[in-house]
């Protein structure tokens, strides 16, 4: 960790934050059986899984949970070039007519979410799409607004938000690193 790194979410805070987000999801969606969670690869996937676990505890409903890869839908393929490490989109439930909640770790420019919405539309026609993000760091470049926000963190454009999750990184922690 660099000297400039600042912790913005501890493991304990992350757990409480996700629990609150799950409650907000149930408030907005009284019938949880109509929800499908889609985690955006990579770190959106374990976050979606955790929200599903919390929704099960709150409502007793097993909310289906899948993964969404947006590699082939990105708008920066031209500048960044092809990526041969695409993950697998795996949403086995029929999403037609359902409320699909996109889950991601950090919302920044909004471009990933634009790509994710397009990717979803190519696998079905959900009744509505909602967006849940653990962190909103601002600097939007597209008209995208999340429905559920874990924490708003003001950042400078050049700063880096590092999200660590126990499933992918061995610990739960969010830090902001200086530019």
């Amino acid at each position: 960790m660099t000297a400039a790194a600042k912790t913005v979410l501890s493991a304990q805070e992350m757990g409480r934050t996700l629990a609150r987000m799950a409650h907000e999801i149930t408030e907005k969606n009284p019938d949880c059986s109509q929800i499908i969670l889609a985690g955006i690869i990579t770190r959106g996937v374990p976050l979606a899984r955790r929200l599903a676990d919390k929704l099960k505890i709150i409502t007793g409903v097993d909310v289906p949970c899948g993964s969404l890869d947006i590699t082939f839908y990105r708008d920066d393929i031209q500048s960044k070039g092809p990526d041969l490490n695409a993950g697998r989109t795996d949403i086995s439930h029929d999403i037609n007519g359902k409320t699909l909640i996109l889950v991601d770790d950090v919302l920044f420019t909004g471009r990933s979410i634009r790509a994710a919405i397009d990717a979803v539309m190519d696998i079905g026609r959900p009744g509505r799409i909602q967006l849940a993000v653990l962190l909103d760091r601002g600097h939007r470049e597209l008209p995208i607004r999340p429905d559920y926000i874990g924490k708003n963190i003001p950042t400078a454009r050049g700063e880096r938000v590092r999200v660590k999750l126990s499933e992918t990184d061995g610990e739960d922690l969010v830090v902001v690193e200086g530019a």
Binding site: F72, I77, Q78, S79, P82, L84
Partner: peptide, 10 residues
Amino acid sequence: AVLYLLCGGA
């Protein structure tokens, strides 16, 4: 995959 690798990106 081959076309993506060769044509995906300027």
